[in-house]
Amino acid sequence: MKRLIPIILTTGIVIWSTSLAMAFKPAVLFDMGGKFDKSFNEGIWNGLEKFRKETGIKYREFEVRQEAQREQFLRKLASRGSDPILAVGFGQADAVAKVAKEFPNTRFSIIDVGWLDAPNIQGIAFKEHEGSFLVGVLAAMKSKTGKVGFVGGMDIPLIHKFACGYVQGVKHINSGTTVFQKMTGTTPAAWSDPARGAQLAKTMYDSGADIVYAAAGSTGLGVLQAAADNKKLSIGVDSNQNHIQPGSVLTSMLKRVDVAAYQVFKSAQDGTWESGVKILGLAEEGVGWALDEHNSNLVSSAMKSKVGQVRKDIISGKISVHDYMSNNKCPVN
């Protein structure tokens, strides 16, 4: 009997701990783009998959198709006991605010939203303008023609924020540099139109630009392709896109949504999850620029040290980058 006690105890503990692990039921609500959008949602998905592989904990997921489904399925997830619930994209903000009130014991995290304030909501926003400033610096230093370009996705304030940061970075190095700016479209289709992206980039290259920065979802893939075809340079966005067209992608502006998503689940699991707004900028490594074997030949050591200096100055506050969304205006064009 005495020998049995430790066995019973250990089995008990094992069962108890697995039931604890079972009790941790994270969930994610993807936005309209769907989890395989090769961009924003997919970045989140990558981060969550990493979490799943590391911990073996499965998560529930749903891809929203209708506006009304946001609230419906947030509520459904919460009432089924999912916790934490990660909502993807600013489109979910109102639904999260409402449902979070109904389920005060469920933790909600939302990415790309920095304005919700509730004891069980964690908002995660990024300083895209800071990351864009850095790639703007790189573009201005690399450009031989004194002309660079920007191709945005859908014409919304968030993308103007990218553009404005980029232009500020370019003008910081050389105020005489011309920046061509184009938005792909005014509907969500603008996020997934590589042919149009290639066309817009081609026009800019023909007008003398030699580097084009694309912040346009999968439309940007067309920009990268056009750069490779025309022997010019491009700049990727969100995830590291340097490998897509090796040798012609100058760098990529990184927005680490995957890290953020991973952190949400991880912190909720180990109990360090906190409500409130987390704004991830250069200092928090939430944004940055990509340097790897695919673009190391394109970035000179002078560029590296300059952009390193600028990065430090932004973090220390010596350079302040204007956020377009603070007043819907950009000081430079």
Binding site: F90, A93, D112, W115, I156, P157, T186, N328
Partner: peptide
């Protein structure tokens, strides 16, 4: 219609503090 609405929602009707059009 789509273009008109995008213009109205992102430039006229959107309250400045709101992110979504």
């Amino acid at each position: 219609a789509s273009v008109v609405m995008v213009y109205l929602l992102s430039h006229v009707l959107r309250p400045p503090e709101k992110m979504s059009p």
